[in-house]
Design a protein around this nucleic acid. Sequence first.
DNA 1: GTCTATATCTCGATAGAC
DNA 2: GTCTATCGAGATATAGAC
Lengths: 188, 188
Amino acid sequence: MDKQKEILNAALKLFVEFGFHGTPTSKIASEAGVANGTLFHYYKTKDDLVIALYNSIKQDLSAYLFSKIGEHDSLETKFKTIFIHTLNWALSHRQQFYYIQQFHLSPHITKLSEEVIQQQTKPHLMLIEEGMKAKVLKPMPVQLNYTLVSSYIFGIYQYLTNTDLSPAKQKKIIADSYQMMWEMISIR
Amino acid sequence: MDKQKEILNAALKLFVEFGFHGTPTSKIASEAGVANGTLFHYYKTKDDLVIALYNSIKQDLSAYLFSKIGEHDSLETKFKTIFIHTLNWALSHRQQFYYIQQFHLSPHITKLSEEVIQQQTKPHLMLIEEGMKAKVLKPMPVQLNYTLVSSYIFGIYQYLTNTDLSPAKQKKIIADSYQMMWEMISIR
DNA sequence: GTCTATATCTCGATAGAC
DNA sequence: GTCTATCGAGATATAGAC
C-alpha cells in the first residue's frame, strides 16, 4: 500500500480511539510507518488530513451502496437495499462508520463545502422524492424523511454494536427493524 | 452567579463551538471572567471539567423530564410526555443537547462510570419494560426499543434545527412524528 | 518523495502572594 | 478563593539533506 493510504489508515485508527485532539500527527506518522515530514508532504495541515479522511470514507460508502442497487429495481427494493447494506457496511467498517459520526459532531463539519454535502445526499433525497410522487411513501418533508431514516439506521447500528449477537440474530434484527421502519414511512 | 457556574457556562459555549480540542482552558477562564488558576481550583484537570459539565447537563435534563410526569399517568401518557418534552428541552437548550452528543462520541465517554450511566438510563428502561409486560408495546429487546426511540428523537431534533419553522409548525412535526413512532412500537 | 532535525508556539497545570 | 506569573511538555509545521 502506498504511504498516503497508510497515513489515512493510521489516522482513522487513532482518531477513533483517541479523538482528533488526542492524537498528535507524530503518532499518526509513526503508526503509518512514515516520517513526520512525509505526513505534511501529503496533507498541508492536520485539518486537511481530517477532512480528506472523511471524504475518502464517504466516497467508499457511497460507491459500495450504489453498487448494490440495480437500475431496474422497484422503489421498495432500492430502499431496502440501501437500508440493509448501509448496516452491513457499518458493521464491517465500524471505525469508518464511527468516524463519520465523530466528524459530523465536530467543528470540522463547517469546513465541508455545501457542494460536497449536497452531492453526497442528493441521490438519497431523489429516491425519497420519487417514492412520495409514486404514492409509495407517506407525504412529509423530504428532508425529514431522510433524517428520520438515517438516525433510525444509526440507532440499530448502535444497538447491534453494543450487544453481542450471532450474525444470524443480527440479520433478524436488521430485517425486523427494516419492516417496522417501512411500515412507518410507507402508505399501506 | 458563582464562578463555578460561570466556568461551566463558558465551557459549554466554547466546547460546542470549537470542540474540546479547540478550546484551551485559558479561553474558558477568560470567557467566564475568572483567572486561569481559578479554573483549576474548581476542576483539577480539563478532563474533570468536561465530565462535570456532562453530568450537570444530564442532571438538568433528567430533572426536567421527570418533573413533567405525573405518577398516575397512563403508560402511553408517560411515553408521550417524555418524547415531547425531551424535544422541547432540546430545542430550548440546544447547546446542552449538542454537547451531550458531542460527549457521547468522544473518548471521554469511556471515563464515565458504569454506575452513572445505568442510573441515567434505568428509569427509561423500566418504563419500556412495563410497557411490554402490559402488552402495550411490541415485544423486542428493551435496549433496542430504547436506542431506537432515542435516535428517532435525535433525528427529529436534527430536522427541526436544520430547518427554520414557526413554533406552530414545529409543534405539528413533533406531534405527527410522535404518532408515527408510537404506531411503530405499540401493539394496535 | 522521504527522511532527520528543529523552530516556534501554545497549552495544561502549578506555585505562591494576597 | 482568587489572582499573577511561569514552567515544562508536547504540539504543528518547516527546512534542508538525500
